[in-house]
């Protein structure tokens, strides 16, 4: 999905923010919007089910450091079941 047509001249000095994913599993209805449209493909469906019987989003194994706090999963979630917060310190790796 990531098609970069040009690179900003200050790309080397820019710090990409890092985010932490928070979820409210019992609100989720498994619509898949957050998982499908995460630009860093950080999320996947859980094995477990919530109290309505839906699989909810969890962070994919090995992608724990990849969230860039773009808030897209937060805004697009119809159920308000997921959000991110910016981590103050270290920048994202491999961003």
């Amino acid at each position: 999905m990531s098609v970069h047509t040009r690179v900003p001249i200050d790309a080397a000095s820019m710090q990409v923010p890092r985010g932490q994913v928070y979820t409210i599993p019992n609100r989720c209805k498994g619509c898949n919007f957050c998982i499908q449209f995460c630009p860093k493909e950080v999320l996947e469906f859980s094995e477990a089910i919530n109290n309505k019987g839906y699989h909810f989003p969890i962070v994919r194994k090995g992608k724990e450091e990849q969230c860039i706090h773009c808030r897209f999963c937060d805004l697009i979630c119809p159920e308000l079941a997921i959000f991110t917060r910016e981590l103050e310190s270290a920048p994202a790796q491999g961003a």
Partner: peptide, 12 residues
């Protein structure tokens, strides 16, 4: 340092 998603009870 950070692990998976943190489960919380409310949204901002």
């Amino acid at each position: 340092m950070s692990s998976g998603a943190i489960v919380v009870e409310s949204h901002p």
